[in-house]
Amino acid sequence: MTSFNTYIIVWLGLLNLTGLTIAVTVLHLGRWSVLGAIVIASVKSFLVLNEFMHLKHEKNMIKWMFLVTLACLTVFIGLTFFDIAFR
């Protein structure tokens, strides 16, 4: 039954993180709030990926595929900003 316990903990963790991200916004931390929101969202998505989608049990190949995709998206946004930020 360990998996059930894990699922419940992860679920409660996700709900709490949602509360936290709203609190961070309401607190008006200025420029840090954007970073805070992204960090919290990333923690949440890490939980969903690893625990719910069982990425941690998957073969390395699937993990690599996922990382390559993220890298691609980062590059797409990054290189676009060489235009946007310097125009």
Partner: peptide, 12 residues
């Protein structure tokens, strides 16, 4: 949705 939520609802 985990990303859409802060990107649209939580902009300070």
């Amino acid at each position: 949705w985990i990303y859409l939520f802060p990107l649209f609802y939580l902009i300070t």
